[in-house]
Design a protein around this nucleic acid. Structure first.
Lengths: 341, 341
DNA sequence: ATGCTCTGCTAAATCAGTTTAGCGACCACT
DNA sequence: AGTGGTCGCTAAACTGATTTAGCAGAGCAT
């Protein structure tokens, strides 16, 4: 890779100047007293030789690599990882940086390896990302340099970027209230583990809190709350069926995520009920299936791309110490209607 | 990042030896005549100081960075990117390498930037990945070093890794034939553009060819073929509706991907038909929705993780020049049954 | 003529490793 | 005594950049 690249010495020689001069000119150093003509010659030489600096050599001296480590627990299992990475990639490119990606798979050995691998490469900073919003403790090894937590917070008070799940909860509840739904709203996806253990999830508690707060203010209570051991379609399906077996049918359903909502749709379809005429459905995440469902599913979007971008900005440009909350926009789609009758 | 790291000179000093000796011992060089005792002292010193070599310095001399560039057109828009990356990440870690990720977004300027950024960092090789299997021409700039195409082929005959879509086509057709389906099989997802332009897709043509070949051998013809401008749920929905409006109802449907199949399910549900009792459905990709659908959707899986892994192996360990075909395993699920009646 | 400042530039050190060339001590052999 | 070989190790060059310290010459004042 990159054999026969011209070096700074080549450029200097061709320009008839010293390496020092060439270096200063190419780096646009202020306050040097090199003549305009010297500038010209260096630029011309660099151009003609197609000179590109060897960043390994540069970073040896400057201790800057223009490289950021993106360390995450799991990149593959959720389709959101891509967006997180893409946002970070974009922001990094704008700042002439590049991303070194590693994955820990939640395994301590792998994590150790990942951290060492990036530190050995002298990265300028680390983005430590979690795929589910949660609290975690970062390995001591990376605390030697700049760190930003992405989709996570830590007890150490490190800068962090998380989605505004509580705000999303409020948006969801408000949307239903505005349509006129009152005491016939049911909730699918309560989960003690997710709600009570911040190391498992921060989203569940925050979403629930946002919903409750808004409904309380409107003096509205939930018709029913279904607990689900996981937030997967099959659990949404089961929850919806149990809701439909009860005497009082809800006019609207809030699902804690889109996969639950997908399951709920399946149960509704089997029961011969129509969304949104019979029942409105609203949810969280904006998984691609939300737009593919018939009717399309209203949901609040996890702003992963924004978050990835924000993390890089925080890392390179500096910023607030308190967690940076990224808003979750409400996607109004066809699954919402006023209550029937 | 990484201030106060012990250097090789520190280790050497502590061991009472020269840098040369320390370097040779730590690199496990054969044929050096350093005493066993010297080895001990160096290892002990390195251990005590927590020595880790500075890879920037090393690579300046050796021109090896133990870093691979992963350049792709689009990482985010498809949820498969994560798997491709994860497979590559795993294989890279096993070989003590790390991945530098950049994205071109299909834009020539960004591509130029991405290529320069990675070449400047002296990567040991480049994995050039496409998110849809297709033919492409790689930028001349990266031809200076090892390159492997991932999910793509090129006219230059570069080593490449692609899924065996034709084999998948055969598996799909065979599965239906084995169940007893004959001349009542319909196909959803024909698409001239994808089939005829290898720069758009290689999958469409290969899948179709695999299906046709297998059916021809069994002297079976397709009942109907629906063209779709895109492979999205709404197009699958429309295609399925049009199929159902015809006099002769198919006993099985092959969809060119899972998203089309998802749309087909929706149309079947609305028409009051049951999968697989009334109609079997089988498809390609193994998108997560395939497992979430009710009944779960039989499909052939795009082996993205395997492919990512294979690309790294090819790049670092060398290998075959002809395209490396990765098999697409058939996931037998609930959407298959013998034809009714 | 001397000293001073300013201009325009460069030699050499430095970063942290790897690698080449070779040194001194010891032994064996003729 | 001289020669050659092996053993165990090191000095110094080298990678390609940045950065520090400083030099030669011109212009000007004293």
């Amino acid at each position: 890779m990159g054999r026969n690249r011209a070096t700074l010495a080549d450029v200097a020689r061709r320009a008839g100047l010293s390496k020092t001069a060439a270096s200063m000119v190419l780096n646009g150093r202020e306050g040097t007293r090199l003549s305009a003509e010297a500038h010209q010659r260096v630029f011309a030489a660099a151009e003609e030789l197609g000179y590109r600096p060897n960043l390994a050599a540069r970073s040896l001296r400057t201790r800057k690599t223009a490289t950021i480590a993106f360390v995450s627990d799991i990149v593959a299992t959720t389709r959101f990882a891509g967006d997180l990475i893409r946002g970070a990639l974009d922001a990094a490119r704008e700042r002439d940086h590049v991303l070194l990606i590693t994955e820990t798979q939640g395994d301590a050995t792998f994590e150790q390896y990942a951290i060492e691998a990036v530190l050995d490469r002298q990265v300028d900073g680390v983005i430590y990302a979690a795929m589910a919003t949660r609290r975690l403790t970062v390995p001591a090894a990376i605390l030697g340099g700049p760190v930003v937590l992405l989709n996570a917070t830590s007890p150490d008070g490190l800068p962090s970027v998380v989605p505004d799940d509580e705000g999303a909860g409020r948006s969801v509840a408000t949307a239903l209230l505005e349509l006129g739904h009152r005491d016939t709203i049911a909730l699918i996806g309560r989960n003690r583990l997710k709600e009570d253990d911040p190391e498992v999830s921060l989203a569940a508690r925050a979403r629930l809190h946002g919903i409750r707060q808004t409904l309380d203010e409107a003096k509205v209570g939930l018709l029913a709350e279904c607990f689900c051991t996981e937030w997967l379609p099959e659990h949404g399906y089961a929850a919806m069926r149990s809701l439909l077996s009860k005497p009082k049918r809800p006019s609207a359903i809030i699902c804690m995520n889109d996969r639950l909502a997908f399951g709920a749709y399946q149960a509704l379809g089997e029961a011969g009920l129509t969304v949104p005429e019979d029942i409105s459905v609203i949810s969280f995440d904006d998984d691609p299936i939300a737009a593919w469902l018939r009717p399309s599913l209203a949901t609040t979007a996890l702003p992963h791309e924004q978050m990835g971008r924000r993390a890089v900005e925080l890392l390179l440009d500096g910023g607030a110490a308190e967690p940076s909350l990224v808003p979750m926009p409400l996607r109004r789609r066809r699954s919402l209607a006023p209550p029937a009758g």
